[in-house]
Design a protein around this nucleic acid. Structure first.
Length: 106
DNA sequence: AACATGACATAAG
DNA sequence: CCTTATGCCATGT
């Protein structure tokens, strides 16, 4: 449908993140049209419908940190999914220097 | 309809 | 380095 909300644009950007790479919230926001949507990106991913393919686990903070509360009971599915894709962590955070997605390179 | 909240980022002091 | 303030949109109450 033509009426694309901010959420839909955000979802499209997130869908473009290749496997084994991660993107920052601000980065997704900027690619979606406005870098100030970083906060909206967070809420958008929070409200992702299970019916849509949106690799929300590939979106992390600028520092490579996962969302607050990911380290609870070892049920941090986000870290598991990223590790399964080959993403490595340093001091509990994603090694952004090596795994941050740079769309410009492609 | 108004207010508060939330997977964040950046600037300023 | 830390705290505050501002920006943005959708949801829940």
């Amino acid at each position: 449908m033509g009426g694309q909300n901010s959420f839909d644009k955000i979802y499209e950007v997130v869908r473009e993140i290749p496997e084994g790479k991660v993107a920052a919230y601000g980065q997704v926001a900027e690619l979606a049209g406005n870098r100030r949507w970083a906060r909206v990106v967070g809420y958008a991913l929070h409200a992702v419908p299970d019916t849509a393919y949106v690799p929300w686990h590939r979106v992390v903070t600028k520092e490579g940190g996962l969302y607050r509360g990911a380290d609870r009971d070892g049920n941090n599915i986000q870290a598991e999914l990223l590790r399964a894709e080959g993403v490595e962590f340093v001091d509990g955070n994603v090694d952004m220097k090596r795994f941050q997605w740079n769309k410009r390179l492609f």
